[in-house]
């Protein structure tokens, strides 16, 4: 892994009041790498994604995306200063996000959920946007649902729309924030299948927070265990999920895999 990382957290700290969510975090992701973040709640795993999507500002450190600072921009003398809106907007083009609660726009049909941003933000024509939406809805097996409203779909279908909507913007990095946590158990499979398919067929960097350990094992190049705002342990999935070195990781995996105990 000698290539330039597409995501790099350089000693990043993030606090909510007295609570430190990210604690001097160093973290890198290579282009096209599929990384899964696991960890107990409050460990800062979702915050990593939210910082990347510019939903949460950071307190210290620098985040680089594609080599450029995310929350900063270079001014005179190559000094880093806080980014302005225009810089954030440019940087966001590289990222797409799938939310735990789908966050579809309830007042728009599925098609408009997909086409609205490409048309208004990227300036695509209606025909181009519709064409792209059609392809992506086929990809997530929802080709015949374009004219429905989100409220008329099942949770699994809504989340697949969520995936397609993020892909419409042609991001290089896809962030998945617990994409199946809000779903009934029988609907989890269809969403994971779509994400797996996506990982196989697209050149995408994928960063995912999930509790689906089996899925993490299948899809990831690397699993990172977060604890108290830092990476406690990371490595290939077989290694982390089967024979973790740290006691905290073992405890966590034991609790997740044996929820009834």
């Amino acid at each position: 892994m000698s290539r330039e990382p597409i995501i790099r957290f350089d000693r990043v700290s993030k606090r909510f009041g007295d609570f430190t969510v990210l604690d001097n975090l160093d973290f890198q992701v290579q282009p096209n790498e599929k990384v899964t973040i696991i960890g107990p709640s409050g460990s800062g795993k979702s915050t990593v994604l939210r910082v990347l999507m510019t939903l949460e500002p950071i307190n210290e450190g620098v985040v680089y995306v594609g080599g450029d600072p995310l929350w900063h921009e270079y001014r005179r003398n190559n000094e880093l200063s806080p980014a302005r809106g225009a810089h954030l907007r440019r940087m966001r083009e590289r990222l797409g996000m799938v939310f735990q609660q789908f966050n579809l726009f309830p007042h728009m049909t599925v098609r408009r959920n997909l086409t609205e941003a490409p048309r208004r933000v990227l300036g695509l024509s209606r025909a181009e946007a519709d064409e792209r939406a059609h392809e992506l809805l086929e990809l997530v097996n929802l080709g015949n649902q374009a004219d429905k409203y989100p409220g008329q779909l099942s949770g699994g279908q809504q989340q697949r729309v969520g995936v397609a909507r993020a892909l419409m913007m042609r991001p290089r990095i896809m962030l998945f924030d617990e994409p199946t946590s809000a779903l009934d158990p029988e609907l989890v499979g269809e969403v994971l299948k779509v994400i797996r398919q996506l990982a196989d067929t697209h050149d995408l960097t994928m960063l995912m927070v999930t509790h689906e350990m089996h899925f993490a094992r299948q899809i990831s190049d690397r699993v990172c265990f977060f604890d108290q705002g830092r990476i406690l342990e990371q490595g290939p999935p077989e290694e982390i999920l089967s024979s973790p070195k740290e006691a905290r990781t073992r405890e966590f995996l034991h609790a997740v895999l044996n929820p009834d105990e």
């Binding site: 999507m53 939903l55 966001r92 939310f99 726009f105 941003a117 993020a166 913007m169």
Partner: peptide
């Protein structure tokens, strides 16, 4: 969450 989805899709 609607606001966040809109930010993620880069709406002004």
């Amino acid at each position: 969450s609607q606001h966040e989805a809109a930010v993620a899709l880069n709406f002004t």
